[in-house]
Amino acid sequence: MRYIKKKSSRIWIYLALAVYVVFCALPFYWTTMQSFKTVRQAFARKPLFFFKPTMQNYQELWIKSTPENFGFLGMILISAFVLFVILMVFAKRFRMPTAFTRSIGMALLLFTLIMLPRVVDTAEFYDYFLNSVIVTAGVVVISMSIGSVAGYALARYSGIEGVVIIIIALAFRALPRMAFALPYYSIGQATGLHDTYLIVILVLTAANQPFTIWMMRAFFAEIPKEIEESATIDGLGPLAAFVRVVVPTAWPGIISTGLFSLLIAYHEFLIVRVLTQSKWTLPVAIVQFTGGEAPGHMTLAAAAAVSATIPIIIIIIIFQRHLVKGLTGGAVKG
């Protein structure tokens, strides 16, 4: 609508928005404060706003004992991490395909994450974090590779079967998670897949598909048909045309959709809780800290909550545009 120019009205607009933003941000602010306090400070009768921050909670959460001999392996890990950052930031400057450089970077990061416990004596929380990384990566890779081809097919095919599949997907998307989690508990017990990464990744991928194909279909529909037509004239088969010609032009949409399937996998509590015993991911691990009777739990819970949120904040900062596009483009977040 038309821009409101009147000064007094604009002040009200800003004020209303400010109140809402404070409402949104207050829990984050407070938990972050609590996570840097000692237990005593956190339970102070009058809330403390100014205090000497302590890293004690984070240390207790992530590390069992501080490393004394941070030798050769430690240096390798640090240099691997630095190399990862360089590769990711300057990916476009190298004389290699950007995707290739980025995947080397990701491999280095994975290497660092897996080798870290050999160098530093990490606490259990680190294992939960690794589980989260494994499950999320598995779900995103499988879900996007089968989902984007299907989304493309749905966008290009005009028969009634396409609409029927889309409608079935929407119906699946609306079903309560409980209706899958419980039967999969029994299926897992019967097949011996209970408490494996495999079953969690498979179930989450399936639960992700409806929304992935909806979103990918919407994004591919915006890409003109002429692109792959000219590719087929050049002698490429349909799959090769898709991979080499269509996918590169569809990157923004793929990133948006990938982000949401990443968030869905990273967020999942119920399915992971029901289907695993030892391979808990971060959300399941964090729930342990709630409702504990020991007072130390509160500051630990705060540190755990902040730790699990940092990756999300990085994602918002880097991909805000894609997130908004995904929310509105697919419009069926699951």
């Binding site: 809402y20 933003v21 949104c24 941000a25 829990p27 984050f28 968030l263 990273y266 967020h267 509590f269 971060l282 959300p283 964090i286 729930v287 755990a304 909550a305 699990a308 949120t309 999300i312 904040i313 994602i315 918002i316 805000q320 997130l323 908004v324």
Partner: peptide, 11 residues
């Protein structure tokens, strides 16, 4: 504004 929606629901 997006923060509450994209943070892990449990968290």
């Amino acid at each position: 504004i997006l923060l509450p929606f994209v943070v892990v629901p449990v968290v």
